[in-house]
Each structure stands twice: as C-alpha cells, then as structure tokens.
C-alpha cells in the first residue's frame, strides 16, 4: 500500500431525512475514517442550513445497485400491473373512506 493510500479515508454515501416522518433521501457522499465521523461530517457538510432531522451513512462499497442494462426486465413488467394502483378501481359516487 502506498503512503497516500494509508491516509486516504473511505467513501460514505449520505442520506438525510429532512423532516420527521419522511424517508431518508440520498444527498451525496463524503470521506471519513469511520461511520461515526462520517455522520458528524455529514452534519457539517449537508445540514448547514438545518436541512435535516436524521442522517444515515453507508460505506459506498456496501451498496449494490441494479444494472441499467436490466432496467427493461426489471421495471417494465410493473408498468402494466395497473391493478397495484388504487386509481384502477371504480368506486360508485358518494362512497367515502376508500
């Protein structure tokens, strides 16, 4: 390992929840020696203007992603399954709470 690599901090992906109740959203990445520091750095880097209520960090190398080449077989089969969406169903006028 070169001298430079010994000093090089790993990459973490950062997810921020902007308000309680909302999902955590990917905002970017940063380098940190460990997860705890990554959280603290994320606070300083990505929430300087009170953008967040909660932070997740994940080592970038731990993320597996779907391949864009498979996007067709992955996502298109869901396109015709309209019955998964509530607007698919006809509800007689005047019926509430459905």
């Amino acid at each position: 390992m070169s001298q430079e690599n010994q000093a090089n901090w790993p990459l973490y992906e950062v997810f921020i929840q902007s308000k309680p109740g909302l999902a955590h959203k990917h905002v970017g990445s940063l380098h940190a020696p460990d997860a705890q520091t990554a959280i603290e750095n994320a606070r300083d880097v990505y929430t300087r203007r009170s953008e967040g209520t909660s932070i997740w960090v994940v080592p970038a190398e731990a993320i597996s992603a779907s391949s864009p080449d498979d996007a067709g077989e992955f996502f298109e089969p869901a396109n015709d399954k309209v019955y998964r969406h509530p607007t698919f169903y006809d509800i007689p006028k005047g019926v509430k709470y459905l």
């Binding site: 010994q6 000093a7 090089n8 901090w9 460990d34 520091t37």
Partner: peptide, 9 residues
C-alpha cells in the same frame, strides 16, 4: 492527521 484517523478506525 488522515493517517492517524484511519489507523485508529
């Protein structure tokens, strides 16, 4: 500094 942080981690 970066080395120390990494070594400690």
């Amino acid at each position: 500094v970066r080395e120390a942080a990494k070594a400690y981690a």
